[in-house]
């Protein structure tokens, strides 16, 4: 069984704080993966707000907020267990993030010793 990180990206700051309904949808999605015993790491939320996020660039340039060169920012991640990347992708497809125009990057985890 391989491990894959699912990295969540959204582009709208307002979407970062979910409504109770959205929260429930996310939890249902996470619960569904956990119920298949395929949750490797429940992951974390990464705060994008000023004071909680800075981007460090070459030549000592430090900007406030997350890295947003592509108009989106990472909002969090989880790690799932799957036989193939296709299986991990099909888990990602069920996530409610697409309703708010977000996207998910699926990346196989290569563990460093």
């Amino acid at each position: 069984m391989k491990e894959f990180a699912l990295i969540f990206r959204i582009s709208n700051m307002e979407d970062f704080k979910p409504s109770p309904e959205q929260m429930q949808e996310r939890m249902n999605w996470l619960g569904s993966i956990a119920a298949q015993n395929k949750l490797a790491d429940k992951g974390n939320t990464l705060l994008p707000m000023a004071g909680s996020a800075k981007t460090v660039k070459p030549d000592n340039v430090v900007t406030d907020g997350p890295f947003t060169e592509i108009k989106e920012f990472i909002s969090g991640y989880v790690v799932v267990k799957a036989e193939t990347i296709e299986e991990a992708v099909s888990m990602a497809k069920e996530n409610p993030i697409f309703k708010i125009g977000g996207n998910i990057e699926v990346r196989e985890v290569l563990k460093r010793d």
Binding site: Q24, M27, N28, G31, A35, Q36, L39, K42
Partner: peptide, 25 residues
């Protein structure tokens, strides 16, 4: 049942068990 579902979701995230998976369903 919404509350129960929610707690089962959380429970499974903490620790998987077949019984919890079935009850969640």
């Amino acid at each position: 049942w919404q509350h129960i579902l929610h707690f089962y979701n959380q429970l499974l995230v903490i620790e998987y068990s077949p019984m919890a998976a079935l009850n969640r369903t």
